[in-house]
Lab assay of single mutants.
Amino acid sequence: CHSECLGNCSQPDDPTKCVACRNFYLDGRCVETCPPPYYHFQDWRCVNFSFCQDLHHKCKNSRRQGCHQYVIHNNKCIPECPSGYTMNSSNLLCTPCLGPCPKVCHLLEGEKTIDSVTSAQELRGCTVINGSLIINIRGGNNLAAELEANLGLIEEISGYLKIRRSYALVSLSFFRKLRLIRGETLEIGNYSFYALDNQNLRQLWDWSKHNLTITQGKLFFHYNPKLCLSEIHKMEEVSGTKGRQERNDIALKTNGDQASCENELLKFSYIRTSFDKILLRWEPYWPPDFRDLLGFMLFYKEAPYQNVTEFDGQDACGSNSWTVVDIDPPLRSNDPKSQNHPGWLMRGLKPWTQYAIFVKTLVTFSDERRTYGAKSDIIYVQTDATNPSVPLDPISVSNSSSQIILKWKPPSDPNGNITHYLVFWERQAEDSELFELDYCLKGLKLPSRTWSPPFESEDSQKHNQSEYEDSAGECCSCPKTDSQILKELEESSFRKTFEDYLHNVVFVPRKT
């Protein structure tokens, strides 16, 4: 048989008469490798580009789960590009990614509803959504962080984005990388972005840091009482949809009607710091009717980097990364020049730590249904340095008659930039024990000054392991946590139920 035959053949030295091919099969003959313009397919066939392209389009058009959109890589027609490569849609070739590779997620039936953290986790790592997304989240724990972890990498949506009755959302900033909504599939009414009845939605994105392009379709905003109209108009300008909307697409009466839409800028007039305090004062603000001013709200939190936005980490279910302080308005003076500047002394802060701070007014709604208010920009203030805590785990070892090696770990709280350490030492008198000992005694162990690591005695271990207080009263049991108490109650309830079950099964009433 021919060298490319495997198993047997019907005619000697003829690659077209093989029972099976050793390498690849091409047009009725066995070959060692697939010549151009053919590609290896499933490690035994040679196919042309049209064959591989037909497989790709067949799966793409069917949208069946589990099928493969075949691509070409290293002269092979394979189910998908290997790690580190992405497909070129024009020629199906796998090309190296520039940075992290995109991950295209194809949605069944063309859309997916995100109504819980669990459903959001199914899209973790996706960068391109081939379909439409509907966000409908009523509640949950730590929602802002969970949504950002699972949806934060999405850069492109081919269909539309719909935010509907998501009472738990305060902001859409968890879509931190969303840059493009194509609108290839539109919501009824030709809408590519749809926001309806979101009672706590206050911000779409921080438009000073976020760009969003909507290729096709219109915007729809109705019944978002805490979303200011200025935020919607800003989205029109940034996304390129200005002029597409009709009169009733953006409701003037049901958007922002319960919001404090600040239209003035508060400026800080005085800032002073110490290692654990920050004193702030800002310019006074009074609405047209000074009785509408209820006070100020001061927001602050630790910020290692200057990239904080107002609604980071917030949701309507209680999660809030900001510390909020309510401040009463100052006494009002008739003389504008003698107006008191409101302020606040922030206490209990960490030394040498940068804080993000902003302040906003708290006002009631005027009778004319106009909203007044003022808010400052987010500023960054760093507390002063102070003395560091003591170095940890000092170790001293003498390696000769004239040297001592000293080692330690950095302090747990540096409280500033540590530039150097101060080492103090003092000579001590020799131990009298060394002169009084009889060095001729056998088995004498000389006193040693070398360091030995501390260890816990058996008594201390027994005390720590004991669940009861000892007789001397030195140790006591740790208080039980809520989960331990709940577990004990469940076990007790189970024992009672099981005992009742045994009584009912074992003891049967005697027939009379």
Rank of each mutant, 00 (worst) to 15 (best):
149 A>E: 15
294 L>N: 10
120 A>C: 14
119 S>W: 04
224 N>T: 06
189 G>F: 04
252 L>T: 07
288 P>A: 15
246 E>V: 09
114 I>R: 00
215 T>E: 15
156 E>W: 15
189 G>Q: 01
215 T>S: 10
288 P>H: 09
138 R>I: 06
243 G>F: 15
253 K>A: 12
143 L>Q: 15
403 Q>Y: 14
331 L>T: 07
152 G>V: 03
301 K>F: 04
117 V>T: 04
193 F>C: 11
147 L>P: 01
345 L>D: 14
175 F>T: 02
132 S>F: 01
139 G>T: 09
338 S>Y: 08
391 P>Y: 00
154 I>G: 01
329 P>F: 08
205 W>T: 01
140 G>H: 15
293 L>N: 03
213 T>P: 05
187 E>Q: 03
161 L>R: 00
244 R>K: 14
259 A>H: 14
242 K>S: 10
210 H>R: 05
188 I>A: 02
266 L>S: 02
361 T>F: 15
358 F>K: 15
192 S>V: 06
382 Q>N: 07
383 T>K: 00
370 R>N: 04
261 C>D: 02
159 G>S: 04
233 H>M: 05
124 R>I: 14
266 L>R: 01
254 T>A: 10
181 I>Y: 00
188 I>T: 13
127 T>A: 07
301 K>E: 06
302 E>P: 12
154 I>T: 08
169 L>C: 15
238 V>Q: 14
297 M>A: 06
232 I>P: 14
381 V>E: 08
342 P>I: 15
180 L>W: 15
262 E>C: 11
261 C>Q: 02
354 Q>T: 14
317 C>R: 02
317 C>T: 01
129 I>C: 15
179 R>P: 00
224 N>Q: 04
325 V>G: 09
187 E>D: 14
392 L>A: 03
188 I>V: 07
230 S>L: 14
240 G>R: 14
192 S>F: 01
223 Y>G: 06
406 L>T: 02
187 E>F: 12
218 K>C: 04
159 G>N: 03
279 L>R: 14
237 E>F: 09
341 H>T: 12
271 I>S: 05
173 S>H: 13
378 I>C: 03
261 C>L: 02
107 L>D: 04
333 S>P: 11
265 L>S: 10
381 V>Y: 08
381 V>Q: 08
264 E>V: 08
189 G>Y: 15
333 S>Q: 11
142 N>Y: 06
331 L>K: 11
185 T>V: 10
369 R>C: 04
138 R>Q: 12
305 Y>A: 05
260 S>T: 08
188 I>K: 04
211 N>I: 05
380 Y>R: 09
200 N>R: 07
193 F>K: 00
298 L>Y: 03
239 S>Q: 10
206 D>P: 08
204 L>H: 01
236 E>S: 09
153 L>V: 15
377 D>A: 07
115 D>A: 07
268 F>I: 08
153 L>C: 14
213 T>C: 09
120 A>H: 05
255 N>R: 08
204 L>V: 09
221 F>N: 00
241 T>M: 14
321 S>A: 13
212 L>Y: 03
278 I>P: 00
205 W>L: 11
228 C>T: 02
108 L>E: 11
252 L>C: 12
331 L>F: 10
324 V>G: 07
217 G>K: 03
281 R>L: 06
229 L>V: 15
314 Q>V: 13
165 R>I: 10
224 N>M: 10
291 R>V: 01
244 R>T: 11
268 F>M: 12
201 L>I: 08
179 R>Y: 13
321 S>Y: 00
326 D>C: 02
351 P>N: 04
132 S>N: 08
380 Y>S: 09
375 K>A: 09
234 K>Q: 11
181 I>K: 00
119 S>T: 11
374 A>F: 07
188 I>C: 09
220 F>N: 07
147 L>M: 14
236 E>Q: 07
342 P>K: 10
346 M>R: 06
186 L>S: 10
338 S>A: 08
163 I>A: 02
214 I>Q: 11
291 R>M: 02
255 N>G: 03
276 D>R: 03
351 P>R: 07
237 E>H: 15
369 R>W: 10
160 Y>W: 05
208 S>N: 12
402 S>L: 13
154 I>E: 00
157 I>T: 01
300 Y>H: 14
107 L>Q: 07
219 L>N: 15
108 L>K: 05
350 K>Q: 15
219 L>V: 08
292 D>K: 01
194 Y>C: 11
201 L>S: 01
350 K>Y: 12
149 A>I: 05
120 A>W: 05
303 A>N: 04
269 S>M: 08
274 S>L: 13
257 D>S: 02
367 D>K: 14
255 N>M: 03
114 I>Q: 00
310 E>W: 10
283 E>Q: 02
150 N>S: 11
192 S>H: 00
313 G>R: 08
334 N>R: 12
181 I>L: 13
108 L>M: 13
256 G>Y: 06
396 S>I: 08
211 N>C: 08
310 E>Y: 14
383 T>P: 00
407 K>P: 00
282 W>Q: 00
199 Q>L: 11
348 G>T: 10
302 E>G: 01
201 L>G: 00
261 C>F: 02
331 L>Q: 09
288 P>M: 09
236 E>W: 10
277 K>I: 15
378 I>M: 05
380 Y>T: 14
119 S>F: 04
140 G>E: 11
103 K>Y: 04
215 T>F: 07
357 I>L: 01
247 R>Q: 13
144 A>S: 11
331 L>I: 08
256 G>V: 10
188 I>G: 13
370 R>V: 06
269 S>H: 14
255 N>K: 03
162 K>L: 15
161 L>W: 00
288 P>G: 14
311 F>R: 07
296 F>T: 02
165 R>M: 09
121 Q>P: 01
158 S>R: 10
242 K>I: 03
273 T>Q: 05
142 N>L: 08
382 Q>P: 13
184 E>Q: 15
223 Y>C: 15
113 T>Y: 12
161 L>H: 00
190 N>T: 12
210 H>I: 11
212 L>N: 01
302 E>K: 13
108 L>D: 00
401 S>N: 14
325 V>W: 10
190 N>C: 13
291 R>L: 02
144 A>W: 08
154 I>M: 13
144 A>I: 14
220 F>M: 14
170 V>P: 05
175 F>Q: 00
198 N>T: 02
350 K>C: 06
274 S>V: 05
267 K>W: 12
119 S>G: 14
219 L>A: 07
177 K>P: 02
284 P>E: 12
378 I>K: 09
277 K>M: 04
388 P>S: 03
139 G>E: 01
316 A>T: 14
359 V>F: 02
391 P>I: 07
149 A>T: 11
404 I>S: 13
103 K>A: 13
210 H>Y: 14
400 S>E: 15
262 E>M: 10
296 F>Q: 01
227 L>P: 00
347 R>Y: 05
260 S>H: 10
374 A>W: 13
261 C>V: 02
237 E>L: 13
188 I>D: 12
290 F>Q: 04
327 I>T: 07
338 S>Q: 06
279 L>I: 06
217 G>C: 04
312 D>L: 11
353 T>K: 09
284 P>Q: 10
339 Q>R: 10
394 P>R: 06
148 E>P: 04
103 K>Q: 13
232 I>G: 01
401 S>Y: 05
382 Q>K: 09
264 E>S: 04
171 S>R: 05
328 D>M: 15
160 Y>V: 05
133 L>C: 04
287 P>M: 06
212 L>M: 03
